[in-house]
Amino acid sequence: MTVQDRLQQIFREIFGDDDLIVSDTMTAADVPGWDSLAHINLIYAVEREFSIQIADDRLASFTTVGDLREHIEELSRVH
């Protein structure tokens, strides 16, 4: 599974929508229920799924799903 596929699975679980298709340009405004709580759950699930730790100063910097995906790939490479 690609990073994108795994991200999509996480989004589907966290937002309880099994038809959700994530895209790089997607933002919080595009997903119903993407509030601060869902954001924490999302970050937690991403950290767990990819065995990474996202630094606090990056948490607020993701404006699109694409930003998040790129950061995951970056951290996974360092690993």
Partner: peptide, 11 residues
């Protein structure tokens, strides 16, 4: 199951 799996099942 972890938080995500439980969240989906709870839904």
């Amino acid at each position: 199951g972890d938080l995500g799996a439980w969240s989906a099942a709870a839904g």
